[in-house]
């Protein structure tokens, strides 16, 4: 069990990082990384939804395979995710308005987040995921990997936006180049032999 745990941890956080290595969840990654606190808020919200999404979609898919209708997986997954987000938004708004003002405003963004549907789909194809427990772990670590990437970029961008810079490079192009350097740094981890 522990070797799978470590393999999932390393894949989720570094080797197969959802943002930098697999290009999932790019819109919030670049849209929300202007300030570190908004990045952290988004990261937590995405990780939470990813875990809940993995929890619901994995058993649902097993049922669909038994019945032979797995071609409907996209429509069922995204419908479940949209409903999760809708329910979460109303519940958090009621239970703790303070948490809602910190994190809740990002929830509607999560429905159109490629990372959440990505984790639901990749859970089925990744060979590390064998059961529901590993699916949940994969969801958690991929979410943490997303948070790690978005917070690092937010830190860099906050400092960089104040530097005197060519006005055409300011804003989006420079954050793409920053993300490029991050991608280079993360590639180093791919050479770790993962349980081979």
């Amino acid at each position: 069990m522990d070797s799978a745990f470590v393999a999932l941890l390393l894949t989720g956080l570094f080797v197969g990082n959802y943002v930098v290595a697999r290009f999932l969840g790019m819109c919030p990654f670049l849209g929300l990384s202007k300030k570190v606190d908004s990045a952290v808020g988004m990261g937590i919200a995405v990780t939470f939804v990813m875990v809940v999404a993995s929890l619901l979609t994995y058993p649902l898919y097993q049922l669909m395979v038994k019945l032979g209708i797995e071609y409907l997986r996209t429509i069922v997954f995204i419908f479940v995710i949209a409903s999760i987000v809708q329910v979460l938004e109303t519940v958090i708004k009621k239970i703790s308005p303070s948490l809602y003002s910190a994190m809740g405003v990002y929830l509607p963004l999560i429905t159109t987040n490629c990372a959440v549907l990505g984790v639901a789909t990749l859970n089925l194809e990744s060979e590390l995921v064998t059961g529901l427990a590993t699916a949940l772990l994969n969801g958690l670590f991929s979410g943490l990997g997303f948070t790690l990437a978005i917070v690092i970029l937010a830190g860099m961008r906050e400092k960089l936006d104040k530097q005197p810079l060519n006005k055409h490079l300011k804003g989006f192009p420079i954050s793409m180049i920053l993300a490029g350097f991050m991608a280079m740094a993360f590639v180093v981890f791919t050479y770790i032999k993962l349980g081979e």
Binding site: L67, G68, L72, V76, F79, V80, S83, K94
Partner: peptide, 30 residues
């Protein structure tokens, strides 16, 4: 047979999720 099953399953999921959304929306109104 497959057509009926797929409609049944997805309609079931839609119904379940729809009910959850509406119940939560009404119960959890501030």
């Amino acid at each position: 047979r497959i057509v009926i099953i797929s409609i049944g399953i997805t309609a079931g999921v839609a119904l379940l999720m729809g009910v959850i959304i509406m119940v939560i929306a009404n119960v959890f109104t501030i």
